[in-house]
Simulated scan of single mutants.
Amino acid sequence: MTIGDEMMKVLNKTYAPMSFIETTFKRYDIAFKTDDAGRPILLFIGKANETGRIKGERFARRLVLDDSGNIVKDHWDNKGKQTDTYAF
């Protein structure tokens, strides 16, 4: 599974810093954790079970910033299948 352009529009927004956001995207349940600047850095995508935990794929964001805080490198790595527990 890869992250498409429509999902990237959701992930490129800024959210509340240091928060965990759960929502839906098309037919998937998604949850992501944000960093101290409010950028999503950890993504879970799949289907939520009866307890609300997502079973599917896990992605981690790699951000490289320069000395002035500008983004130099930004990409998402697929970390593989995610069971029904979150890995924080």
Rank of each mutant, 00 (worst) to 15 (best):
D77S: 10
N70I: 08
T14V: 13
A60Y: 03
P40N: 05
K55H: 11
F32I: 02
H75N: 12
F59R: 02
L11P: 03
G69H: 05
I54P: 00
R62K: 15
R53Q: 08
D29Q: 00
T34W: 10
I21N: 08
I45V: 14
D74K: 04
D66W: 07
F32M: 04
V64D: 04
N70H: 13
E22A: 15
R53N: 14
I30P: 02
N49F: 03
F32A: 04
I45L: 07
D67W: 08
D5S: 15
M8E: 06
M18R: 14
L42S: 12
L43E: 02
R62V: 12
G56T: 00
K33Y: 03
R62H: 04
D66V: 01
Y15C: 15
I71M: 06
E57P: 00
G69F: 07
G56W: 03
K9E: 08
T34G: 06
N78P: 05
T34L: 06
E57S: 09
G56M: 06
L65E: 06
D35V: 11
K33W: 10
K73T: 12
E22M: 14
F20V: 14
T23A: 09
G52F: 01
D35Q: 03
F32Y: 12
A37Q: 13
D5E: 14
R61N: 02
A37C: 10
R62C: 03
R53V: 05
T24A: 02
F20H: 15
P40G: 09
N70A: 09
F59E: 03
D29C: 08
D5N: 14
N78W: 01
V72R: 11
V72E: 09
P17H: 01
K47L: 11
K26G: 05
R39S: 06
V64N: 02
S68T: 11
M7I: 10
E6W: 00
L43Q: 02
P40H: 02
D29R: 09
L63S: 05
F44G: 09
S19P: 09
V64F: 08
K9N: 12
Y15R: 07
V64Q: 08
N12H: 11
A60R: 13
D77R: 07
G46P: 01
T34Q: 08
K13F: 02
S68K: 13
E50H: 05
D5G: 15
K26Q: 14
D5A: 14
I41Q: 07
R27P: 04
I45W: 00
T14D: 10
V72I: 14
N78S: 10
H75A: 02
D67V: 10
A16K: 15
T51H: 09
K55E: 09
L11Q: 09
I21S: 05
K13V: 00
K13Q: 14
R27E: 12
K13L: 06
G52M: 03
V72N: 01
I30N: 06
